[in-house]
Computed example of a mutant assay.
Amino acid sequence: MAQPRLATPADAAEISRLRSENILSEPLDTLWLDRCTDQLAVRLVPGGDARAYVIDAPDGRLASCALGLVHAVLPAPKYPQGLAVRIHAVATDPDHRRRGHAKAALTALLDHLEADGVTLYELYASEGSAPLYEGLGFGSDPALMRMTRFPAPLDGRTP
């Protein structure tokens, strides 16, 4: 099996593609893919808030990726460094599934984040991906809630 490697800004387009094609309910159009790629590339630089591990496919694309976005929280005994991560994307191209790529990339990412002092890990799991995450130590939290809010448009029209 191919070994995961730390992603660089040059991997941003492929990570964005994998997320768009394999995670989102509707794939992103070119404009949104470009926006995601540009933002992710800046965040994947050393010292940035994005960390990702990827597995290369033989065709030069990525076979799989695991992406986390690190953010600060107030320190507490369970997160003394005040660092948390939201696992934003774990995706494998359909032609490369069932080979352990997602688990390998995510395990490498979790190990890297632990070495960085992150102790709080959060993610949203689909029904199909939950066994992978549970096998790595994630547990369900019935108290976790989610909401999306958009600012009201200035002209009174809905977006």
Rank of each mutant, 00 (worst) to 15 (best):
E14N: 13
G60P: 01
H88L: 10
A72D: 13
L28E: 10
L28D: 04
D155C: 07
Y53F: 08
A2G: 10
L106E: 06
H101S: 08
G156K: 03
H96R: 01
G48F: 00
M1W: 05
L31I: 03
D38A: 11
E127Y: 05
S20L: 03
S126F: 11
L28Q: 08
T107H: 05
R98Y: 12
A108H: 02
A143N: 12
L123A: 07
A41L: 03
L62T: 08
L31N: 08
R146A: 12
A105G: 00
S126D: 05
N22V: 13
R43Q: 06
A7L: 02
G139R: 13
E127C: 13
H112E: 09
G137E: 13
G139A: 10
G156E: 01
C65A: 14
Y121L: 11
G128H: 01
F150W: 15
A57S: 05
L106F: 11
L154C: 14
H101A: 10
R99L: 15
G128D: 15
D38L: 11
T158F: 15
L31G: 04
A89Y: 00
Y79P: 14
G82T: 07
D95E: 11
R5K: 05
E14L: 11
V45H: 05
R35M: 08
P27K: 01
G137M: 06
L120A: 14
P151W: 02
T8I: 07
E114W: 11
P142E: 07
Y53Q: 03
A130G: 04
L67F: 13
L24T: 11
L106W: 09
V45P: 02
R17N: 11
G137V: 06
L28W: 00
A63K: 03
T92Q: 02
R43Y: 10
L24F: 00
V73I: 09
S16V: 00
T8N: 08
A108Q: 00
F150A: 10
L28T: 06
L110P: 04
Y121G: 14
A152W: 07
A105C: 08
P94F: 01
D59M: 08
L132S: 04
A50G: 07
L6G: 09
I87M: 04
A13Q: 04
L67Y: 14
L31S: 13
C36K: 04
